[in-house]
Design a binder for these strands. Sequence first.
DNA 1: AAAATTCGCTTTGTCGGACAATTGGCACTT
DNA 2: AAGTGCCAATTGTCCGACAAAGCGAATTTT
Lengths: 245, 245
Amino acid sequence: MPSAYEMVADAIEREITSGRLKPGDQIGTEADLVRQFGVNRSTVREGIRVLEQSGFVRRETGRKLFVCVPRYRNLSSRMSRAMIINEVTFRELYETAQVLEGGAVEAAVERATDDDIAAMEENQLRAESVVDDPIRLADVDTEFHALVARSTRNRVLELAREPAALLFFPTSEMICRRVPQGGSRMVAAHREIIDAIKARDVERARTWMFRHVRDWKRGFERAGRDIDEPVERIFPKLSPGASFL
Amino acid sequence: MPSAYEMVADAIEREITSGRLKPGDQIGTEADLVRQFGVNRSTVREGIRVLEQSGFVRRETGRKLFVCVPRYRNLSSRMSRAMIINEVTFRELYETAQVLEGGAVEAAVERATDDDIAAMEENQLRAESVVDDPIRLADVDTEFHALVARSTRNRVLELAREPAALLFFPTSEMICRRVPQGGSRMVAAHREIIDAIKARDVERARTWMFRHVRDWKRGFERAGRDIDEPVERIFPKLSPGASFL
DNA sequence: AAAATTCGCTTTGTCGGACAATTGGCACTT
DNA sequence: AAGTGCCAATTGTCCGACAAAGCGAATTTT
């Protein structure tokens, strides 16, 4: 027997997943829902919290409850935190990065538009200008990979890599900070990858992405870390600068 | 300024992510939290709903609030629903499946234990026995891929594929039902994959996984579907039989 | 008349208290 | 010691209330 607040949340969620409520639609006020479901406002509010947390509805600055397309960021960030608690190791992260970034760059070679490439070039300019600033460089690197992923025009793939990607940044930052020439190698790899995408050269793109990710692992090892160590609290907090996502 | 219930949720979440509260630990009663945070019980309860939905805490049949390792199933299923609402296409699903299942089988070749292989063999036996029952076969197929993923000993990779995998099942079922000999081809492919894993033959494993996934797409096409069609409501409900996940 | 301001209504966030149902633990019985 | 029944604790839900913040409309100002 599901409790009342669960029924409220489920009922509204069904309205959304079934398409009867579409993104952008407004949901009634709390008082409306009270009347609609015949439960107390406290109960309605608990149901709303569930939906809000699920990402199905959003409230904007204390007002107006409206349906929204669940933005992945929420879910991804929660998955990232789940991974931390589960004490996943750097090795797991690395291996997954090879698979996902390799797959992403392959699809990007196939589908990247001129706009996508322009965005990467712009990113590259910024990368070159902050090559000696570990924090900024790690941030730019994270963005670079997100740009590659977006170029795939594949939201499922983009989504699949995001939880892990959120954990890339903090480690990248640590690596850039501790490994001399890590920055220049990174920028050089990006250059090759962009050129390979431009030339629609899948093999070259995969090769350089592979090297780039392998460098990332080597940097991690040279920084004196054990790759079988949990990524647990290697970093202070989750990607403070990844605001562009 | 964050609202009170958010502060409660954040505070408890920090206790968990920082490691001060460990999985299995009990969190005080609602009354305790009321005293601890100096807010009303309704407020505490809203905060608890948020945490519960995030997967950080769980309540067992109306009692005892305890910290738990966020189990991915919740998050994955939510991501799947998000993908449906975003109207991802079969093509996106297919492309991602190639990347992820290919990567998974490669890691599985490297790390599968005897137990893993035994589980796959057992799964294969069941597959052979239900080769003409589309629903059961699709269910067994989903389990097969989950077994491969588990063999990787890579929770990040396992997690990355799960949201997409939850969408595989319903389409598999449709394909098995509509394409004659789809079942036998599937069983044959599984056989090859298992043998390749046993033989630690990466190339063969990748090749057959690739064929297997490609068959899946072909089945989809032969069933008269357009692969650029949103997977929206191809299926009635989300994986009713995937209880083993 | 157009723009700015003020006033009031609505809605949210929070609070305090209340009650039935369920559960856990404890004392009591066998 | 094991089983049983009672009491206290706890949860789910409800009711009513209030301050703060936003929105709209009426009003005032330019």
